[in-house]
Design a protein around this nucleic acid. Structure first.
Length: 504
RNA sequence: GCGGGAGUAGCUCAGCUGGUAGAGCGUCAGCUUCCCAAGCUGAAUGUCGCGAGUUCGAAUCUCGUCUCCCGCUCCA
């Protein structure tokens, strides 16, 4: 049974070193989290599983790792600069929030005129009016109220707050001198790094349509309300694929990727029946999308929320970033681009004519994947003797620690030595982290490793070193299974193969 | 950003109408032929989220601020 509440997960994550609040010793910073000793292992394992499935096990994919800070022209032509910085106002009476420009535009002409007059502007130059209101928010707030700007929700004149710009992108200065032209953005999605490297990848790999580019990396969004542990954060990590295909084949590829992604989640221990597929309504689609499937996972406490979006981005992005747009027959509506120096085309597989391909984008959040994987793995069990144990039933390939090697007595140098050598031997297999565990007693060690999802514990005892009652057990160890709690006696010489097989 | 609730040891929490901080579990060290949070001995850990104010005196009252949780809003 998966986790019932977010709280028990948060508590376990903190207690066992998976996830900590960011900047905690200074009071914390909203929307930022740090991954601890076990968190980083789990996270790396999730990313490795994704890369293995989507890059290594396919014949139509390449990888990429683009920089986080991008030329601001990238985010301008992608449409992010315009849509990421709308000034907003709140109505204190109704608690509703509106985009300032929409709010004023929706008023009667006389009211619009009164707002403009109060700001010393004219309605004709609407952009200048909005700019003036952003520049002098106190005056703007008064103008909205005095002009009688009504709230569409209540139909009454609102008690309007000062307009505040909501810059969803993190802006930063580039180079030591901060002037108006020396700024850039931290990318709000990794996707743009793929689009801007499309030509480089095509030229350096001799790829033909259809093919995709995969990337895992950090992205930054100044979320208004970071909330719900690592579900909505301001610094996140994305696992994104941009899959390029010929127009007309995009819808078929969209369906194929939907199936492929659901299968991947299943393999990570997030079952199909816990995911709902949302065919995003047209009016909710992002500016670049023709159709999007949102995979909605049933998070504890939160209910069904997005874990991955699979979007058909058409030819919008490459079309936006390419030069010579007018001669390429784009289907998407894009802004003119006088800045790009590259033509982002590839040969059509049938006609061999240069075209801007369509793009299917499966985009998953690493942090949300962590949350889902942990939620599904979490179990609180009541044992036969009436005691309880918490166990993370993580798939072995995701477990932060693969095997814990435990000396039964730590005041016996021979046992400790033997345990260390077994640890080294297993570590050399390259399966991941093997931990030498000598704290507490063996029972506590077992329970501790249940709680962090270690699939196997290997215990070295007096029999192992030939000091037990049964000489036949010399050079054998106990292998204890996380899920069944069962134990078996295994010769050390067979241990490596056994562990390797079971961790597969 | 709005409304509600909360913040005391690593975790869960107690601490009255103000009088200088505690428990359980965990952690660490030692002992124990020790296989399912066993036992015994010992130890460490808190600017009571942070900052002001009121007071002779604040974990406790007031204000501000940060963070977390819930509901709105937002999530291109």
């Amino acid at each position: 049974m998966p986790a019932q509440s977010m709280e028990e997960l948060v508590s376990l994550c903190k207690r066992r070193g998976f996830i900590f609040q960011g900047s905690e010793i200074y009071g914390g910073l909203q929307g930022f989290y740090d991954y601890g000793p076990l968190g980083v292992e789990l996270k790396n394992n999730i990313k490795a599983a994704w890369w293995r499935t989507n890059v290594y096990e396919r014949d139509d994919m390449e990888g990429l790792d683009a920089s986080i800070i991008m030329h601001r022209m990238v985010l301008r032509h992608s449409g992010h600069e315009a849509t990421f910085s709308d000034p907003m106002v709140d109505n204190r009476k109704t608690k509703k929030r509106y985009r300032l420009d929409h709010l004023v535009k929706d008023q009667k002409p006389a009211v619009q005129g009164a707002v403009a007059e109060a700001m010393g502007q004219s309605v004709e130059n609407f952009a200048a009016l909005v700019a003036a209101m952003v520049k002098d928010p106190a005056r703007a707030s008064a103008a909205l109220v005095s002009a009688g700007v009504r709230d569409a929700f209540s139909g009454e004149v609102g008690d309007w707050t000062e307009p505040r710009p909501f810059n969803m992108m993190f802006k930063t200065t580039i180079g030591p001198v901060a002037d108006d032209d020396s700024y850039g953005y931290l990318r709000p999605e990794t996707a743009q790094g793929i689009f801007t490297n499309f030509k480089n990848v095509v030229d350096s790999t001799s790829r033909r349509l259809p093919f995709g580019i995969a990337q895992i990396g950090k992205a930054f969004r100044n979320e208004i309300t970071p909330r719900n542990f690592i579900f909505r954060v301001r610094e996140l990590e994305q696992m994104e694929i941009e899959f390029f295909c010929a127009p007309g084949t995009d819808e078929e590829w969209h369906e194929k990727w939907l199936a492929a992604r659901l299968a991947w989640w299943e393999a990570q221990g997030v079952p199909r029946e816990k995911i709902q597929i949302l065919d995003v309504p047209r009016e909710d689609l992002a500016h670049y999308s023709k159709r999007t499937y949102d995979l909605m996972y049933d998070y504890p406490t939160l209910g069904y929320e997005e874990i991955e979006g699979i979007a058909n981005r058409t030819d919008f992005d490459l079309g936006s970033h390419t030069k010579g747009q007018e001669e390429l027959g784009l289907t998407a509506s894009v802004l003119p681009n006088e800045d790009s120096v590259a033509k982002l085309t590839i040969a059509h597989p049938d006609t061999q004519k240069p075209i801007v391909p369509f793009v299917i984008e499966p985009s998953a959040g690493v942090d949300r994947a962590m949350l889902a994987v942990l939620s599904e793995a979490y179990a609180l069990e009541t044992l036969e003797n009436g005691t309880e144990r918490i166990v993370l039933r993580l798939r072995p390939h995701l477990a932060p620690i693969k095997v814990a090697v435990i000396p039964l007595a730590r005041n016996r140098p021979e046992i400790v030595e033997k345990a260390r050598s077994v640890k080294q031997e297993l570590q050399a297999l390259g399966l991941g982290r093997i931990l030498f565990e000598d704290s507490g007693n063996v029972g506590k060690a077992y329970r501790r490793h249940d709680e962090v999802g270690t699939p196997f514990c290997v215990t070295i005892d007096f029999d192992t070193i030939g000091k037990g009652d049964d000489a036949a057990l010399t050079d054998t160890v106990t292998v204890r299974d996380r899920d069944t709690m069962s134990q078996e006696r295994v010769a050390i010489k067979d241990l490596a193969n056994l562990i390797r097989e079971r961790l597969r």
